[in-house]
Design a protein around this nucleic acid. Structure first.
Lengths: 218, 218
DNA sequence: TGTACATCAGTGAACGCGCGTTCACTGATGTAC
DNA sequence: TGTACATCAGTGAACGCGCGTTCACTGATGTAC
């Protein structure tokens, strides 16, 4: 019982409707947040009855899971594409910001406060590892040839706790740079997207640029 | 019609019940998240009927508002107390982490993804300004006597966009240090509290310590 | 090319649930003389 | 100290709502001979 390569018309149709459901789900999330996601509301928006969606998603959780996976996949693809074009750390940082501002709710669904009661699917760890690999490669490339002044306490700690870096052979300094890259840029982006900078009168892009400069040592 | 100084027994009782409602609200938020906050559920937990709570809070939004204000108030008090004890930037950083880990949901309610459809009360801006003032003072104290090498682009930008610093006379370098302090520490804390570091195998406290060291220039 | 059958998308009714909120009320607590 | 009255905490019934999800069904689409 081998799955046929070319999708049948019905399979094509199913995939098409699934995509449309997800499209409306994102729109709904954009206006009311992830916790307000409602299958019935999506169905109504599509001109379908509520139960019809159960042909395409087993339940609400499976839909959310699909959205989260798509979001991770999208970021991983964007990162890989940039890296393939020879982008350095600063290039990845620019891509991350572009990706985040392009669809704030997508960023927040993945990196924001977890949806209460929802357990993240395990198969996203593969995709996050893919993202981390691209980041680690860029960090390793950014390391100077000579080891630098002296390894800080964080480098020492990470040298002994590098399970998350998988099979990467990046030096400890690259590991700490990757973590710092991630948390610093997330710090700016999440405060910005959550609206904590609004009304303060300065441009968050400047803060982001300053963090990128500090990370790439220029 | 001047309000009496000493609260009447009834006023005391009202304040007491209000506190108890908020206590149960926090417990509920801790287990199911802020968007799942339910007046009826709180009432049931307190052995009251649902409508009884409307004696104490006009509606659900007013309860959430009270929780947010209490959270900000709590952080502001903690910061001021530490600063009064002569704490420097590193001391404030330690206090922030302690405060965040003491009650993760409280941190996330204030600094996490905004509750969809909920408009934050304006009177919290006074309290956030108070927090910022303590932070700015500590940053100004951390600046070296001589101006330092050269002002970065962020300092230049902030020198012209310092409305958020109110009447503070902190130099631009202190302003950028304050913003960086906030967003870097928030980056680590929010990823940690959202569970993005779990399973990675390293200790988030080390990353936090490294960021504090980088911020205080040691 | 035509017929018989299987597959499957979508419907409408129904289930139980919990939510926020209102309303008219009872009964206890406090106040004024 | 005792009585009459006002205040107000809390109740129970009720409102309309939207949710996720199930079930038996209709009717269109695709498949096999």
């Amino acid at each position: 019982m081998v799955k046929s390569q070319a999708p049948t018309p019905r399979e094509r149709y199913r995939a098409q409707v699934r995509e449309e459901v997800k499209k409306h789900a994102w729109e709904q999330i954009a206006t009311a947040g992830a916790s307000a996601l409602s299958l019935n509301a999506i169905a109504k928006q599509m001109g379908l009855s509520g139960p019809a969606l159960y042909r395409y998603f087993a339940n609400r959780d499976e839909l959310i899971t699909a959205l989260i996976r798509d979001a991770y996949r999208s970021l991983a693809d964007a990162f890989r594409a940039r890296a393939a074009d020879g982008a350095d750390l600063a290039g990845l940082a620019a891509e991350l910001r572009r990706w985040a501002l392009e669809d704030p709710q997508r960023y927040l669904l993945v990196y924001g406060t977890p949806v209460p009661g929802y357990e993240a699917p395990t198969d996203t760890t593969e995709i996050t590892a893919e993202i981390m690999t691209v980041l680690l490669d860029a960090c390793a490339a950014a390391e100077p040839a000579e080891p630098g002044p002296s390894a800080g306490p964080l480098d020492v700690h990470l040298a002994a706790h590098r399970a998350w870096a998988r099979e990467s052979d990046a030096p400890p300094a690259a590991l700490s740079r990757a973590l710092t890259f991630w948390s610093r840029l997330h710090g700016v982006l999440s405060l910005e997207l959550a609206g904590h900078f609004t009304g303060m009168g300065f441009d968050p892009a400047r803060l982001y640029a300053a963090e990128v400069a500090a990370l790439t040592g220029s």
